[in-house]
Simulated assay, not measured.
Amino acid sequence: MTQQVLDRVAGYERRFNTLFEEYFDTLSAGVDAPSFSRFTPECVQLLRELSLRGGKRMRVVLLHEAARLVTAEPVEGLDAAALSIELLQTHGLVHDDLIDDSPTRRGGPSTCYAYRERFPGHPQTALGLTVLAGDLALALSLRVLLDAQLPAAVRQAMVEVQTRAAADTFVGQIIDLERDFTATAGEEILHCVADYKSARYSILAPMQLGLLAAGERPDLFMQELRDYARLVGICGQMRDDYLDLFGDAAIMGKPTGTDIRDGKHSYTVSALLSAVSDTERVAVRAALGDRSCTPETVAAVREIGENRGVTVRMQADMRRYAEQASAVAAGWRSRWREEAVTFFEHLPLWSVERAM
């Protein structure tokens, strides 16, 4: 990434964070709830805190850069689309943390743990309010599009994109949980989970929304967009799984080995189980799903992976999928603007390099 591109990306993030804060200011003042309700404004406040605590806003970046494929001029509708994308992400974080029983998110308490602290003697109330908080974020992500000052046809198309992305993500969550009940998750299952759970709402949907806002018809190029999103999604999930075991905890700001302790059959775990000896496989399986697994045990599993060439193999796989995604984007040059095509061409390679 050139400095010019990095500056542009940082600009998207700064502008959106201001927009998101203003959105929640308006929402907090005008949410339609009975005057006696205390739980409703508390729910909105928790969604606000989670939403504004950070994140790279890469979905917002993809949205804006997709519009730049068509034009460098300002485009109406990008603000509403960006809010919709990140509200859907907030929904996903709330429910992800509930499913994973995660106490923290983005340097603060997860919504489910915040509600547990709020209602220590009423676990079902805490559970119910967590689910409803996530549901509210999903509904708001669609409402912000329905309220956007855009032509009706564009509004409808954007809502269809986000509705489909949300449904695909729910299926992705289901098959992600199902995956961990298999003895060994094969490559196609892992790719399918990455596609449904992440790529379709994090990459494909923002690109579709950006193109729609800029007056383009993404349905005319859907197979290319799907191919690109799937390949980038696979790279991204591989990178996350790789860093979970082989990353630097100090740099990441969180401990390694989470997938091992949670018993997740991730790309890394699958690669480990296929590369180790019978004796080493017993050690890996003993650690898999052990919530009390010590840092020393995680370090031992990491060493096994390094000695068996798992790091080298995963790095090569990530680069191969990144190069395939880059080649798909390169094919857009005859149709769309060179500068934006170059961004999408370089993005997967840059993403992979962050893991190496």
Score class of each variant (00 low, 15 high):
D278Y: 00
D278L: 07
T279H: 06
E280F: 02
R281K: 13
R281V: 04
R281A: 14
R281H: 05
R281D: 14
V282E: 14
V282R: 11
A283E: 12
V284I: 15
V284W: 08
V284H: 09
V284A: 11
V284K: 10
R285Y: 01
R285V: 13
R285G: 05
A286R: 12
A287W: 04
A287C: 15
A287T: 13
L288P: 05
L288N: 10
L288D: 09
L288Y: 07
L288A: 09
G289Y: 06
G289V: 03
D290A: 12
D290P: 02
D290H: 09
R291K: 05
R291D: 02
R291V: 01
R291E: 08
R291I: 03
S292N: 06
S292D: 11
S292F: 01
S292T: 12
S292G: 07
S292H: 04
C293G: 10
C293W: 00
C293M: 06
T294V: 02
T294M: 06
T294Y: 02
T294E: 12
P295Y: 04
P295F: 03
P295A: 08
E296R: 08
T297H: 04
V298H: 03
V298W: 06
V298A: 08
A299M: 04
A299E: 15
A300K: 10
A300H: 13
V301M: 09
V301E: 09
V301P: 02
R302T: 11
R302F: 10
R302C: 14
R302W: 09
R302N: 15
R302A: 14
E303F: 05
E303K: 15
E303M: 13
E303L: 15
I304K: 03
G305F: 08
G305Q: 11
N307K: 15
N307Q: 15
N307P: 00
R308K: 13
R308D: 07
R308W: 04
R308A: 08
G309N: 09
G309I: 03
V310F: 11
V310L: 11
V310T: 11
T311N: 06
T311V: 14
T311S: 13
T311I: 06
T311P: 01
V312N: 01
R313A: 15
R313G: 03
M314Y: 03
M314T: 11
M314P: 07
M314I: 12
M314Q: 15
M314F: 04
M314K: 04
Q315L: 13
Q315R: 14
A316N: 01
A316E: 11
A316C: 00
D317E: 15
D317G: 00
D317R: 04
D317W: 02
M318G: 06
M318R: 03
M318Q: 05
R319P: 00
R319W: 05
R320L: 09
R320S: 10
R320M: 05
R320E: 14
R320K: 08
Y321I: 02
Y321F: 15
Y321N: 12
Y321R: 07
Y321M: 07
Y321L: 06
Y321D: 15
A322P: 02
A322H: 01
A322F: 05
A322N: 09
A322C: 06
E323Q: 13
E323D: 12
Q324K: 10
Q324V: 01
Q324A: 14
A325M: 06
A325W: 06
A325K: 07
A325E: 11
S326I: 03
A327P: 00
V328I: 15
V328S: 13
V328C: 12
